[in-house]
Design a protein around this nucleic acid. Structure first.
Lengths: 120, 120
DNA sequence: TGAACGTATGAACAATAATTCATATGAAAG
DNA sequence: CTTTCATATGAATTATTGTTCATACGTTCA
């Protein structure tokens, strides 16, 4: 194993090898955990949470969202891009406008769970 | 209302006042949305996700966690502090050691929901 | 009490990310 | 096709955040 830099483990008493080893086996791939963190990072911004909440209520064009959140069109557009990449929203063109909507119900589920936690 | 800076709304066609107004009413308080984003921000870091995942399997002291993640004790301690403040983990002292564990089942629920999304 | 050990904390630095500004793209209407 | 309008994008700036290093704190054991 490549445990070179942090051999500073607390001696026998503290590190319970059995536990450490068995947990190591149960851990998902690093890449999955990375993706998971990336997903939550997307939810971890007030502007994006607001956008998602707005889309809960109704599909909407970029301009409507900007108006609603009292923010610049560019800022919203940048954040919609992030949400799009995370597959949390989808969009369709209607003439000059681009209408955004929630990608699926996971979004609601995840946000509702978070809401439950902070409401405790 | 204080919509001065962003009167740059796209003309009549785009902004559907009825929709905007009704959605505005449905929106939770700004403070709640802020707290929600703060919560997800905590999940939005690989190190913290890993710590939580490790604690899924077993309560553990700081040193064990650092060993498991092959990271410095200080870094882990700092992140545990963040997790503690978000009430996602709790701790108890056992002699010289401090044993951390998950605060409640919301943590599992939230992480599992996120997992479902990325596994699609 | 004093030494040793596990953990916590503050400051500093490096890395990331959000917003703004200016401008580009692409559809629609004349 | 040219202009207009809605949206997208790149660069720059500012703000935020994670890790490290050094050190302090609090238990335990001699």
């Amino acid at each position: 194993m490549e445990r070179e830099k942090y051999e500073e483990r607390c001696d026998e008493i503290c590190v319970h090898d059995e536990v450490v080893n068995s947990v190591t086996e149960e851990m998902p791939e690093d890449e999955i955990l990375y993706d998971l963190a990336e997903l939550f990072k997307v939810f971890g911004d007030t502007t994006r949470i607001k956008i998602l909440y707005v889309l809960f209520e109704s599909d909407m064009c970029v301009c409507d969202i900007a108006e609603l959140l009292n923010m610049g069109q560019s800022a919203i557009s940048h954040q919609l891009r992030v949400l799009k990449q995370a597959q949390l929203v989808k969009f369709r063109r209607e003439g000059k406008q681009v209408i955004y909507s929630l990608a699926d119900d996971h979004v609601r589920t995840i946000i509702n769970n978070g809401m439950e936690h902070i409401m405790e």
